[in-house]
Computed example of a mutant assay.
Amino acid sequence: MSPLITVEELRALGTAPVLADVTWNLAGPPGKDAYDAGHLPGAYFVDLDTELAGPPGAGRHPLPDATTVTSTFERLGISSADTPVVVYDTANSMSAARAWWIFRYFGLTDVRVLDGGLTAWQAAGGEVTTDAPAEASGTYVATPGHLPMLDADGAAAVAVKGVLLDARAPERFAGEVEPMDPVAGHIPGAVNAPTAANVDETGHFLPSADLRSRFSALGITTGTETAVYCGSGVTAAHEALALESAGLPATVYVGSWSEWITDPTRPVATGTD
């Protein structure tokens, strides 16, 4: 099953899935404001900073703990691992992908991302509402470890023996600018693959064949050991989603660059090589 779902496919589902609006903006305004202004009927708001990440420390968006995720599952009404869940954001799925990855890591098996998000829904004539659903009372208990995950040492190892993708913009990868973290550059041996190139101008993911071609040009084919990271583990999930859509599974280094640089003994590379 594809990790993506189209508006048409969502409408055709016989049983309505749990809907989660994960609209989030790195530099503001708050995603909750956008949710309050209009969202898919029945969708719950999920806050990336407080529900899909732990407090900043070892990186800007470390893993949340299982108790936090269990509370989110509870209020969304999720009572089993196979409860169908569809997550979305405004358009390009950058933050929705984080929910897709976190929910799967903590045990859910049927999580898909609405391709094109709210923008695609509205473009197809979909209704939006400002009404928030009542909190539910799901019973599923989140447990970690249902997807593989890398730490800093693991990411460094993949950079040597496989392909480690850096999902950030080229200028951040090269160390020319760094708007978010105190050190600029990238993990030695990483390959730059900006996440923005996974989607078209409407926010829809490129067709699977095009994504496979893109990643093949970066050295990734079936069987290649592949890992991804970004600044804080958000757009890395988007890269992992694009890779899975292309049939090329990858492991996420959740701590990403913001965690890598907390240890001054770890090497830092700059430039485009």
Rank of each mutant, 00 (worst) to 15 (best):
R104H: 07
D82I: 05
R75F: 02
A155Y: 10
I5H: 13
I78L: 05
R168W: 01
G126D: 12
L40T: 13
W24I: 05
T195Q: 14
A91R: 12
P133Y: 00
F205H: 08
G162T: 11
D49R: 04
A237R: 11
P148A: 09
T224H: 03
S256E: 09
S79A: 07
I5C: 11
A27P: 12
I5P: 11
P17G: 10
E259P: 14
A124K: 07
A12Y: 07
V160K: 15
A242C: 06
L241R: 03
L4Q: 08
H146C: 01
A34Q: 15
P41Q: 11
H204Q: 09
E8I: 09
H39Y: 02
T72I: 03
T226R: 05
G59N: 03
L218A: 00
Y44T: 13
V163G: 11
E201N: 03
S258G: 03
D166P: 02
S213A: 14
V69W: 04
G271F: 06
E8P: 13
I187E: 09
I261Q: 09
F73S: 09
P55N: 12
P41C: 08
V163R: 08
A43V: 08
A12E: 12
R168M: 00
D115W: 06
N192A: 03
P194T: 00
G189V: 01
I5W: 15
L248E: 04
P170C: 01
D110A: 09
S95A: 15
T6W: 13
E244C: 14
F73Y: 12
Y253C: 05
V183S: 00
A217G: 12
T221Q: 14
A209S: 15
V234R: 08
V86D: 10
I261T: 08
S80C: 07
D65V: 05
R75Q: 02
P179D: 04
Y105K: 10
P148G: 06
W100D: 12
E201G: 10
G125E: 04
T272F: 15
T70H: 03
Y44E: 14
E201Y: 02
M1Q: 11
W257P: 04
F103V: 10
A136V: 08
D47P: 13
A53W: 00
W260I: 08
V228E: 02
A20E: 11
A193T: 00
P179H: 02
L165W: 10
S258H: 04
I102W: 07
G189Y: 01
H61F: 05
L147S: 06
S80I: 05
G14Q: 13
E51V: 04
A242T: 07
V128K: 11
P55F: 08
L243I: 06
G125W: 05
E201F: 03
T262F: 06
A197V: 08
Y140H: 07
M1S: 13
L241G: 10
G189H: 04
S71T: 11
G138L: 04
T130C: 11
P55W: 10
R104Q: 13
A91H: 10
A134R: 14
F173Y: 07
T83L: 02
A124V: 01
N25S: 14
G162S: 06
A12I: 10
A190Y: 04
G125L: 00
